[in-house]
Design a protein around this nucleic acid. Structure first.
Lengths: 367, 367
DNA sequence: CTGTTAGCGCCTTCAT
DNA sequence: ATGAAGGCGCTAACAG
């Protein structure tokens, strides 16, 4: 009658068309149990003729799995996250999983909502770049209720869940070492560093120089500062606190202003803590009329597409986005497979290293 | 026993905890039918205590709707699509829908797979930027089976489905008019234009000049060429076929080479057919040692983030990504609402206009 | 206002 | 190798 909508063929329809029982049709369609070759083909033919598509909701009700992952990031359209999503989605699909996605705009409240909705969809796992260090109750609850979680990019220390992150300290140290090896002795670092109070910054640097110790902090810009300091220490090069620029907020205008100030202390090289800082720092360098790499060497943390399009192209350290996405999905699938008995108490924490893309913006100076 | 996984509270658990029947619990939880205030609160409290989350799979089995959309694009990580996805996802969530996503890398085969899987998930609709003009059988079948489809960015003429696209002709005409108004009489256009054979290009331009008619073609670069020609005609300015650069493929290196050749015909202004062409064209302009906007005015079709970061910043026409995504989701939701009886034969085709972002790369020359 | 009952589409024993 | 029957978690008739 009025079945112009939602008139999907069911396994019953297929069974009737093929003159078999629903059980047999189910076996042929689902690839389980015993079915004779002839019946199987008859069923498959009937299914094709009816354009039968298995209803995953029904399957999920029984199996408990919707063959679906949820993915939550703070900004879906950023070059970084969209690349991670792309690889995670592709990997998941190749392994039979769909991906539900959501964007929180860094709102913990929206994140909590997203987790709840994914829970209602009974996703087989959530890949998430947590929006907040504080509010993680919803994730804890999800995990406590048996939900699988893999954190990416950011890792909550208080959450019992796997993670795939960049090794910020090591990668920043590698970057710094590259500049040091090129002969630079006055290297500027521009970052948010909001976990360290402005008044404490000088002391942190000096303490590190004296003891080789510092609280690494959780924020990437702090961990990367640690790498910057470590590389100096290993090379036996003292750090001048005036060369560490702290914006305190996440705006490129602040990075421009801070860089402008730092430039007056005559660095010969400069590295940033991420792509946004790169924008501000580059602008300040240009406004100061300095030429890259002749007047100053430039190394961007985060490799964004436009870095190869500016003049001159800028060297950068690229995060392994594709790997991060794949690893996260791989871990989830691994968890699902390996859950015959083990209740899992230990967690996997993968830390990947970034790789430097050399575009010639680092000048080698007199060794 | 071994219920450390998947031990989700069900409506039965909640009903028992609240000492009511499942039906009553369902009514309280689902917000339908009559429930007294006291019972409702008791049920809700029990649900909260058990961290009950409704199983959407079960709900979907009855209602026929999983409250989910599917979204398929050819490149999830492109600035263009990721912005569209972001807005579509946000709009959908705000209206109670989740979004499943997939990336086809322009493969029609993967697209067919994605549609099938989304069909199995019984999505309430698919938002898609079709990968191929030819292969659309899977979409036809999906629509024939009662599936809802909204096309974005690209529109298949042979598909009975709504669409949200950019008005390429009008937008390109606006761009061209902007250059013409600035006094330019020799405006280069760099595009893929692969639907027109190289040998035919001159004839197409001349035919248009003579008759005001041309086959607009389906590919964006051709429709935008049409707009370019139309604007010239309206302004009474003749087009020189030598200024129309055809790459024939979608690679920035080709755009660079073609632009290099076109520059020898001394254009005073240049516009591209999209972001990739912009990369090649910009490189050619730089390599030719020409200064923007003094030696040549530059207008990019597609506004990418880096255009404001190069020196000098480049003016561009921005596609309304956020609007495209929202409109697509809005149409889908509208379709769902308006399907009491109407079997829908007419379809909605929304064509949005791009807007020019002026960054000063267009020089006004002697009027 | 509340409880009982019968499915939605599929998988899974258990017979045959 | 195949069929019959029960149930996953929820909603939608019905009664009461």
């Amino acid at each position: 009658m009025d079945e112009h909508r939602g008139r999907h063929a069911t396994i019953v329809d297929v069974a009737q068309a093929a003159n078999v029982s629903v059980a047999t049709a189910g076996r042929a369609l689902g690839g389980y149990g015993y079915v004779s070759l002839d019946t199987r083909e008859a069923v498959l033919a009937a299914a094709r003729a009816l354009n039968y598509q298995k209803n995953i909701a029904a399957q999920s009700l029984i199996s408990g799995s919707a063959k679906t992952f949820g993915m939550i990031v703070s900004d879906l359209s950023s070059e970084f996250y969209s690349n991670i999503i792309k690889s995670a989605v592709n990997y998941s699909f190749r392994h039979g999983y769909c991906v539900l996605i959501h964007d929180t705009h860094e709102s913990a409240e929206i994140e909590r909502e997203a987790v709840a909705i994914f829970h209602r969809h009974r996703v087989d796992g959530i890949i998430i770049a947590p929006a907040s260090m504080q509010s993680l109750g919803h994730l804890r609850e999800f995990v406590a209720g048996g939900g699988r979680v893999v954190q990416i990019d950011r890792r909550l220390p208080g959450l019992a869940a796997d993670s795939v992150t960049l090794d910020n300290v090591r990668t920043a140290a590698t970057c710094t070492a590259r500049l040091l090896e090129a002969g630079h002795r006055r290297i500027a670092y521009i970052g948010e560093i909001d976990e360290v109070r402005p008044a404490d910054l000088g002391r942190v640097v000096e303490t590190y120089a004296a003891t080789g110790r510092m609280r690494k902090g959780f924020a990437p810009s702090c961990q990367r500062l640690a790498g910057y300091l470590e590389a100096h220490r290993e090379a036996g090069v003292p750090v001048c606190a005036d060369l560490v620029g702290r914006t305190g907020n996440y705006r490129w205008e602040a990075a421009r202003d801070v860089t402008q100030a730092v430039l007056s202390h005559r660095p010969t090289g400069l590295m940033t803590s991420d792509g946004l800082m790169t924008i501000g720092a580059l602008r300040a360098v240009r406004e100061a009329g300095m030429r890259i790499p002749d007047d100053i060497s430039f190394l961007s943390f985060d490799d964004l597409e436009w870095l190869q399009l500016v003049d001159p192209p800028l060297s950068a350290v690229a995060q392994p986005c594709a790997e991060i996405g794949e690893e996260a999905a791989r871990i989830l699938i691994g968890q699902i497979r390996g859950e015959k008995e083990a209740p899992r108490t230990r967690h996997e924490h993968i830390r990947l290293a970034g790789s430097i893309i050399d575009r010639g913006s680092i000048q080698v100076i007199g060794g």
